[in-house]
Structures are given as structure tokens and as C-alpha cells.
Design a protein around this nucleic acid. Structure first.
Lengths: 218, 218
DNA sequence: ACACATTTTTAGACAAGTCTAAATTTTGTT
DNA sequence: AACAAAATTTAGACTTGTCTAAAAATGTGT
């Protein structure tokens, strides 16, 4: 019932690619992420399907089963906890951290992870703001911030609003700022505190009145 | 030039078995330690020999080359440093530590090891008293203690003497306590502070006068 | 020193994970 | 709807590390 290093990496990448769209994850996308060939991906997917870790229909892409998802989330938990350790206690820089965490995340000892978690003070987010799931696989409620407080350059997505007037909602719908919409904060103008975001490839201007009423992921 | 997990384990076990006797390490001994078959060991030894990590002559056992030894010592360094971390910072018990350290010792990042070493305060010994080599592969001078201070039950070996009279030297030679001689402290009698040791399978009594003049490894 | 037991090596096979090349399915464009 | 391009899968092969069974070398006792 235990997974190999390689199987774990496949599950992790399937998980990450699943978040990007709600269709099945394509063979080619996986091949690119895992730096391997599409044919190798097909072989491995069949193996994972036989183990009931993924749902798979020929030519239709893959998705994780509940079992597969649990394993993937567990790896992400380990990855992020190790990153916190490397950064906060060993003095690593952000650029150096990822590569080492890629190895540490595969150490198989739930005792180790739980004790590391405790040692670190049960952090809820890694230093990138990535949420750290608990040992049950539950993610903490994502941190929210108002758009007028977000740092320029950050990617984010709409999580909620504080103002519920019909005209405001119509405005949001018109510019495409639906719940969950992904964007990047490209600029902030100090003189009127208006912001510019990149949304679906287009640049959109938002007044401070709009920005201060939008909750976005941090 | 990088080693697989498996190759590293072979090198580590060859190193450990080499210490026990100064002959080549036998195929069967390795097979037992590595929980595998003798034929598999032969295969792997050939591979390591091709990489110039071991010296090998058919039927004559193996030994490490300088390159192989460097790698083995490096793994021991990592193993012991991780053990210190697990014990002193994560609250592991001695019984739980070894298994996890077996996995952690294979993480390939010299930066990680060096920073862990620093974080731990450059420990010279693990909590079992095992010496921790530095990043060059040099072991610290082994800790010494007088035989009359050693704990009962410990294995040790003779490292030196404080009294150099001819009669004392003759006495030591007679009972077989040469430099480097291995023994186990089996008993200490409080009433006269004499000790009993097991040396070459025989029990030997030593007065406190003898014990207090013998340096032994700790 | 001879015969037998033990150790070690060889030979051939297998599972995991990968690859290339060829075949098949899906998609996108007229 | 038809056809070409792109994506995906199959087929067959290779590497790593392992195994079993059989052959070869070494060691041991009388």
C-alpha cells in the first residue's frame, strides 16, 4: 500500500494540474511537468489506475480518486513544512529551498512530519503564503486581504466582497471579476490609490472604491 | 558521478564491516546486513568496482577505495547529524530514531548538511557517543575516559595509559591489554573499586590502581 | 591430500520505470 | 464532413536491482 518516490511525484503533479482547470489532466501536460515522455506517463497512469489512485479513461486525461488526493495533499503538507524549517531554522534562501524540499517531502514517517509540525509551531502557511494542510488533509481557510492592501506584482484571485449593492455586482460582472477569478496586480497609483490588474490577458483599471471592497487571496 | 540510494547503502555497510576486521568484506556478510541475496551482492559489487568505489577480486571479498570511503563517511556524517536533530529538537526516542535517519541520510544536498551541522552547533558526537566526521571526512579525536569512570556494560578499547613503569607495562602485556584491545566492562565492585572486563572471551579482574591508569574509548 | 561442505559467482529471468518509433484517437479547420 | 495536425497510446527494448538455480572456487576434517 506504499507508494514509490516516482508514483508520489506523479500524484503531486496531477493534483497541482487539476487545480488549474476542472477537466482531466492531459498526458502531455504531465509529461512536461515531470520532465519525461508522454508514453512513460501513459504507462504510469495505468499503474496508478490499477491501484485506484486515479480515474482514467483512455484519451480523456486523469483525475485523482479520494485515495490519490489524500496522498498528494500529504506530500504537499510535507513539502511546505520542510520549506518552513529550511527557511526559518537553517537560513536557506527562497531560491535554494525548493530543490531540497522536493527530496525531503518523500521521507515516509508520519511521526516525523507531525513532530516537525509541532517543532515549527503548527504553521498554517508557508512563507509564500501557500496553505499547509493538517494531518487529516484539511487546508486552513485561505488568508484574505483587501485588494487595496495587496502587494504589486502578486497573483491572486477574488474571494469575496464587502459591498453587496446591485450596481457594484453588475460592475464586477461586466469587467469579469467573478468569484475565484484569477488576476495579477500590476500597478498601484498613489495619487488616487487606484490599481491596475491583469485579468484574462487584459489590463483593467479599478478605482480605490472598488479595490477596498474586494477580498482577494493572500 | 552520483550514487543511488542502493549504492550508498552498500558502501555504508562495506565501511562498517571493514572496521570489524582488516580482511576484505565477504559477500555473505554483506548479503545478511543488506537483507538481500549473495548473488545480488556480487552483481552490485561489480558495478561499484567498475565505478572505482571498491577494490574487488573474485572470491576475495571487497574493500573501499579512497573515493568509496569518502562517500561512506559522508553518509555516516549525515546519519549522525540527523539523529542529533531528531533526538534533541524533535523529541524522538532512541528506538525511533534509527529508521528515520536511514532515510534522511540519503538526501543529497551538501548545503543542507552543512547548515544542519551549524544549526546543531557542530556536534562532535551523536548521543550514542559515535563520532561525527566533518565535511572533509575527518573524525574528531575519539573521546577518552579513564577505565574507572566507564559505565558498566559498555564496549570499549584501550587508547592509552597514564603510568609508564616497566612493571605496569609488563602486567598489561601479560593480561593482553594492548593498545587498541577491545573489551567489555562487565562489573564494578564498589567495596574496592576493582572492575571486571571481558577480553578475548575471558573474564579478567583489574584492581582500581590498574583501572585508574588506563585510558579507554568513550 | 581427498572428499565434502560452504561460499561465491554465473546464467537467465523478472518488475519498475523509462525510451523510441509506430499506430491510433481526438481536435481543429476548412 | 473530411482531412491534416496534435495528442495519446501501444509495442518493443533498455537499465537497475533483484531473484532462483546451477556451476565454480575455496575451506575443512580426518
Amino acid at each position: 500500500m506504499s507508494q514509490s518516490f516516482t508514483e508520489e511525484n506523479y500524484l503531486k503533479q496531477i493534483y497541482k494540474l487539476s487545480k488549474k482547470s476542472d477537466k482531466g489532466v492531459s498526458t502531455n501536460a504531465l509529461a512536461e511537468r515531470l520532465d519525461t515522455k508522454a508514453s512513460s506517463v501513459t504507462d504510469m497512469i495505468k499503474k496508478l489506475a490499477a491501484k485506484k489512485l486515479v480515474n482514467y479513461q483512455k484519451y480523456q486525461g486523469v483525475s485523482l480518486t479520494r485515495k490519490g488526493q489524500k496522498i498528494a495533499v500529504d506530500i504537499i503538507r510535507k513539502h511546505r513544512l520542510w520549506e518552513v524549517f529550511l527557511l526559518e531554522h537553517l537560513g536557506f534562501g527562497w531560491d535554494e529551498v525548493h530543490e531540497v524540499a522536493e527530496e525531503l517531502e518523500h521521507i515516509k514517517s508520519s511521526t516525523l512530519v507531525d513532530r516537525l509540525d509541532k517543532f515549527l509551531g503548527h504553521p498554517k502557511y508557508d512563507p509564500h503564503g501557500g496553505p499547509i494542510p493538517d494531518s487529516e488533509g484539511n487546508f486552513p481557510a485561505p488568508a484574505r486581504v483587501k485588494l487595496d492592501e495587496l502587494e504589486v506584482g502578486k497573483q491572486s484571485n477574488v474571494m469575496g466582497i464587502t459591498e453587496h449593492s446591485e450596481s457594484f455586482l453588475n460592475y464586477l460582472k461586466k469587467v469579469g471579476l467573478n468569484l475565484g477569478a484569477q488576476f495579477k496586480l500590476t500597478e498601484r497609483h498613489d495619487f488616487d490609490r487606484s490599481v491596475e490588474i491583469e485579468l484574462n490577458g487584459k489590463n483593467v483599471q479599478l478605482s480605490h472604491d472598488v479595490a477596498k471592497n474586494l477580498f482577494v487571496a493572500y
